[in-house]
């Protein structure tokens, strides 16, 4: 369920795109530092968004630096530097979510994929433990999500909202961790809830065909007029995020975050709907 929180590149200013890339590269490098070089491969757009959002809220990204890319020594990349642990926290969220995704895959994949997942599990486990040591609450929230998701999916007639709730609630709580007062907590919480719901629906809509064949759980399987149900629910989730987001007064990276919420996410939604 990764990679849905994307920018719409064509609508970004060049400097904004460069800033976005430098956060992406900065997060990549942070993962290499905190975990291992291999962990850089699980870098996702979603966690890049999380990093940008954190740095915007905390106003902690003050400088960029140009250095060689580890994967391509000929290329020079610019890296953003955070004054606090924004990048570390995002890196931790990346490895923790990757681990729980892996566990999820082991539970409901075919033989080959399951075996492959089992082989890499110790590595992911090690990263996750290291991340959990520093950010126990991120690990706890993710574990709770996996648990709640499993429970929800046992009921084959699980209603849509209930199926989406674990992911949404997890992201809501993760976002709320940043809040300094009650009003912020409610706003961040709603942004997270809407985003989580959106991601869950996007993922479920993407996997719909596949799940139908393999008879795995999917909230959209067996629904008449599937396309409009998906569309309405995704739009609603976005609207929820958007309303809450409007109450924030961000300054840093505002253009990028605006782009993601008002253009990137609707584009993702349209792409998904096109495939159905």
């Amino acid at each position: 369920m990764f990679g849905y929180i994307k920018i719409q590149k064509s609508e970004l200013l060049v400097r904004e795109y460069e800033a976005y890339k430098s956060v992406y590269c900065g997060l990549c490098r942070q993962m290499g530092r905190d975990y291992s070089r291999l962990s850089r491969l699980i870098l996702s757009y979603d966690c890049t968004f999380y990093a940008i959002f954190l740095m915007s809220l905390r106003r902690s990204c003050k400088e960029f630096e140009r250095k060689c890319c580890r994967f391509n020594p000929l290329k020079k990349c610019s890296y953003c530097k955070a004054e606090d642990d924004s990048l570390s926290k995002s890196a931790a969220l990346s490895v923790i979510l990757a681990y729980y995704k892996l566990i999820d895959d082991i539970a409901d994949s075919g033989f080959f994929k399951r075996t492959a997942c089992k082989i890499v599990r110790p590595i992911f486990m090690r990263w996750r433990k290291k991340a959990a040591l520093r950010y126990p609450e991120l690990d706890r929230l993710s574990a709770e999500m996996t648990e709640a998701q499993k429970l929800a999916e046992q009921d084959i007639n699980c209603p849509l909202d209930k199926a989406a709730d674990p992911t949404a609630a997890m992201l809501s709580s993760v976002m709320s961790l940043e809040a300094e007062n009650d009003a912020q907590k409610r706003i961040y919480g709603q942004i997270g809830y809407g985003l989580g719901r959106f991601i869950y629906f996007a993922d479920a809509a993407d996997d719909c065909e596949k799940d139908q064949k393999s008879e795995s759980f999917n909230p959209f399987v067996g629904i008449d007029d599937r396309k409009s149900v998906i569309k309405n629910n995704m739009s609603q989730a976005l609207a929820m995020t958007y309303d809450a987001y409007n109450l924030l007064d961000l300054v840093d990276f505002k253009g990028i975050i605006d782009n993601i919420i008002t253009k990137g996410l609707p584009t993702v939604q349209n792409e998904i709907l096109k495939k159905i």
């Binding site: 009003a183 409610r186 709603q190 309303d243 409007n246 109450l247």
Partner: peptide, 16 residues
Amino acid sequence: KYHPDNYNDSPLADLA
């Protein structure tokens, strides 16, 4: 942006 119509029934209506 903050018009109450946008926050009909929203839990964040008071903040808006």
